[in-house]
Simulated scan of single mutants.
Amino acid sequence: MLTIAAGVQIPLQYGVFGTDFQFTVGVVLAVFVMVVLILAPIMELAPTRGVPLGRGVKVRIGIGWTLGGLYCLLSGFVVLMVTTTGLIELGTATTPPVDAIGSLPEGLSMTKTEASNCANDSDGTDCERTFYIAGKSGTPEQIAEQVRQHLTDTKGWTYTPERTSLGDSSTWSGSCRHQGWILDSYEACTWVKIKTDGRVTVVVSHKDID
């Protein structure tokens, strides 16, 4: 059981399974390991209750219980600190993954993606990734409409026109929402934009939750 827990923790901490539950599951696994270390010796000794144990066996049992107890104390302290910090800050924003907008429908393709450095301000951390979308046919407005419809159908985003920012000819803002598990929760926002050169882009932002 401990081997399985360790085998899951390693890829989990490297983000192999994504970041929406990375710290939350890490804390759950740490608690699971502590419970196993506490219960396993008790269950192991239960069948030998009333049976005399040799001095060497008692010493080994004592060492095992001591090391297990120290590990549980240290892990418990770390889990408490991580959980407390996580509940106060409600996660730390990370850069949206390259599959944040999913697979595009036929006729649309992603030409490139760019991730900017996470910015820190009074509201916390804000990480963005920009996806450049091309269509086999149609005007930029038609391609942008296809993209918005795709994200509405597959990701549940709803878009409304907003004031165009510098460098864009048209901008639509998607409603922000909370994503991620308890300790990994963050606010996700998205925009669909037509650049002044006609390119269509999707911007996905992950922000700390205040």
Rank of each mutant, 00 (worst) to 15 (best):
V147E: 00
Y132A: 01
A144L: 03
T125L: 07
S169M: 13
D121M: 04
Y159R: 01
P140D: 07
Q142E: 12
Y132G: 00
T125F: 13
S137I: 03
D153F: 11
S122R: 14
D121S: 05
D168L: 11
G174M: 05
E128D: 09
D153K: 15
E128P: 01
D126V: 07
S165R: 15
T152D: 12
P161Y: 01
D121T: 05
G174D: 03
S169A: 09
Q146T: 09
N120K: 14
D168A: 10
K155I: 08
D153R: 13
T130C: 03
T160D: 09
T139M: 08
K155S: 09
S165F: 13
C127N: 01
Q142N: 05
Q146P: 02
A134F: 05
I143D: 00
I143K: 00
K136M: 13
W172Y: 15
D168G: 02
E162Y: 04
T160I: 05
N120P: 03
I133A: 00
F131L: 09
E145M: 08
T139V: 04
I143V: 15
T158Y: 09
C127P: 01
E141W: 01
N120Y: 15
G135D: 01
P140W: 04
S165A: 13
H150G: 07
T125M: 11
T152N: 15
K155H: 13
S170M: 12
C127Y: 02
E162H: 05
C127L: 10
T164G: 06
T160W: 04
C127R: 00
G124C: 10
D153V: 01
F131W: 14
G156H: 01
F131A: 00
F131K: 00
T171V: 14
T139F: 05
G167E: 03
D123R: 15
L151T: 02
Q146A: 10
F131Q: 00
W157F: 15
S137V: 09
W172T: 11
L151P: 00
A134K: 05
S122L: 08
T130E: 03
H150T: 11
R129L: 05
S122V: 13
D168W: 05
D123A: 12
S170D: 10
N120A: 15
D121C: 02
S173V: 04
A144P: 08
T171K: 13
S122A: 11
E162V: 14
D126T: 10
D121K: 02
I133Q: 02
D126Q: 11
C127S: 11
A119D: 15
E145V: 07
T164V: 15
A134M: 09
T152E: 15
E141C: 07
K136A: 15
G167V: 08
D126M: 02
T139R: 04
K136V: 14
G174P: 05
G167T: 06
R163E: 13
W172P: 00
D153Y: 04
R163I: 06
Y159M: 08
V147T: 01
S122Y: 05
D168T: 04
G156L: 11
Q146W: 10
K155R: 13
R148H: 12
S165D: 14
P161W: 02
K136G: 11
D126P: 02
Y132P: 01
D168M: 09
D153E: 13
V147R: 00
Y132H: 13
G138H: 08
